[in-house]
């Protein structure tokens, strides 16, 4: 496991002494402690561990969704822990895509509109064409006008994949992407995820407790009680 960056091969994500604790009635509760991590561009990393090991916390800190109580996170060499929330939001818009366990599609929007959303947010005038192309790529060309309610779980997650890749993000964070799906559907979604990841040379950080899924990643990071194994 690497703990420092190499000058010739700059990291896309790097953490130094990253920690997160919250106050509790029995004193400070350490959710994550002293995580040092370097991830290179194009790598695929699986973060594995049991429930409560700190996987989701690590993901939220890496993606700038939350702020650490100690240490720093660098994305493309920029320390996101010193940025304010709006700075981090801009960074997310520019570099990061997400896939969530609960899909997180907006219920009122159609499949196409859900995929268009991140492009629209960044002011891309070509949102619709790009979204159509990607939905076609994930096999949902005929489902463009369907709302999430009208889609199965697998279809919803494929829409979420299309939404995540439509901005061609440098980094994709996936939080238990198959957690809500049966194994066959899950496998199909994962195949798609890895295909798209390869096509776009995206850096993938995948949180899972599924060993077979983790095994498909280039590297595995184990967490237990908030510490890296």
């Amino acid at each position: 496991m690497q703990t420092h960056s190499e000058p010739n091969n700059p990291s896309i994500i790097e953490t130094r002494n990253l920690g997160k604790s919250v106050p509790s009635s029995e004193g400070e509760l350490h959710i994550l402690s002293s995580v040092d991590l370097i991830i290179k561009p194009g790598e695929s990393i699986a973060v594995v561990g049991e429930s409560g090991s700190g996987k989701t916390t690590l993901l939220s800190l890496l993606a700038g969704l939350d702020t650490p109580t100690s240490g720093s996170v660098f994305i493309k060499g920029r320390d996101i822990t010193v940025m304010n929330e709006d700075g981090r939001a801009a960074l997310r818009n520019e570099l990061i895509g997400f896939v969530f366990q609960s899909f997180q599609l907006l219920p009122g929007l159609t499949a196409l509109e859900n995929v268009m959303l991140p492009l629209e947010l960044s002011g891309d005038g070509n949102a619709e064409a790009a979204a159509r192309a990607l939905l076609e790529r994930v096999g949902l060309a005929r489902r463009l006008t369907h709302t999430p309610k009208q889609l199965s779980g697998g279809e919803q997650q494929r829409v979420a994949l299309a939404r995540a890749f439509v901005t061609r993000p440098a980094i994709l964070f996936a939080d238990e992407p198959t957690g809500n799906l049966d194994s066959k559907t899950g496998a199909h979604v994962i195949d798609l995820l890895f295909e798209l990841n390869r096509e776009q040379h995206t850096t993938l950080v995948l949180v899972t407790h599924d060993a077979s899924l983790a095994a498909r990643c280039g590297r595995m990071i184990g967490l237990a009680a908030g510490r890296m194994l």
């Binding site: 993606a63 969704l65 929330e85 709006d86 939001a89 801009a90 960074l91 997310r92 818009n93 520019e94 990061i96 997400f98 997180q104 907006l106 959303l117 991140p118 947010l121 960044s122």
Partner: peptide, 11 residues
Amino acid sequence: ALLRCLGCKQR
């Protein structure tokens, strides 16, 4: 939350 996740600023 999702919009902010996708990069929208508070303002």
